[in-house]
């Protein structure tokens, strides 16, 4: 943990600092592009000029070391699940996961007979936002990312946990 993280009682200064940190973190979550199947095409379309994710601060990174959000876009096979887990572990904290599309969320069309498909990426990594669709339109992904930004904004990085 960082030196100042979760060390302070709740008061006006700490709350404002928390708000500032939440604003800073939520408005520049660089995402780790994890395109596995057709959802990756929609993810690319979201990053391209028509939908332009960079206007809400999302920037595609190809290395987990530089990324804050992992967008798991597509069918997660059993073999790939090990890599998903490992790459999630290799991301720098604080880290978030978006499960994009029904394959990543629940196995999708492969939920019954797909012997090689992981039935939901939440079995290996903690998912913050699920984006439904097969594949989801870029608007749906952007909606999910805005939901994730809201979630990051409500975090209190400096305040001591009461539990």
């Amino acid at each position: 943990m960082g030196i100042l993280e979760n060390k302070f009682q709740d008061n006006v200064i700490v709350a404002s600092m928390d708000k500032l940190l939440g604003w800073a973190r939520s408005t520049s979550p660089w995402y780790f592009q994890f395109g596995l199947a057709c959802c990756a095409i929609e993810m690319m379309a979201s990053a391209a000029s028509r939908h332009d994710l960079e206007r809400i601060g999302m920037m595609p990174r190809s290395s987990p070391r530089q990324a804050d959000v992992m967008i798991v876009a597509g069918t997660v096979t059993m073999k790939m699940a090990l890599r998903v887990k490992k790459l999630y572990e290799q991301m720098a904290d604080p880290k978030y996961v978006i499960s994009m599309g029904s394959c990543a969320t629940s196995g999708g069309p492969y939920w019954q007979h797909g012997y090689h498909v992981l039935k939901g990426v939440d079995l290996v990594v903690p998912v913050d936002v699920y984006v439904p669709g097969c594949p989801p339109r870029p608007e749906a992904l952007i909606e999910g990312l805005l939901k994730l930004q809201e979630k990051i904004q409500t975090e209190r990085p400096l305040t001591r946990k009461s539990v």
Binding site: I3, E5, S63, Q90, D93, P157
Partner: peptide, 23 residues
């Protein structure tokens, strides 16, 4: 600043060499 506020949770997987998810 990052020393002060960034979470630091090292583990063997995170400290391993990045090779596209391979061991």
């Amino acid at each position: 600043i990052q020393k002060l506020i960034a979470p630091n949770n090292p583990n063997p997987d995170k400290l391993a060499t990045y090779e596209c998810g391979e061991e």
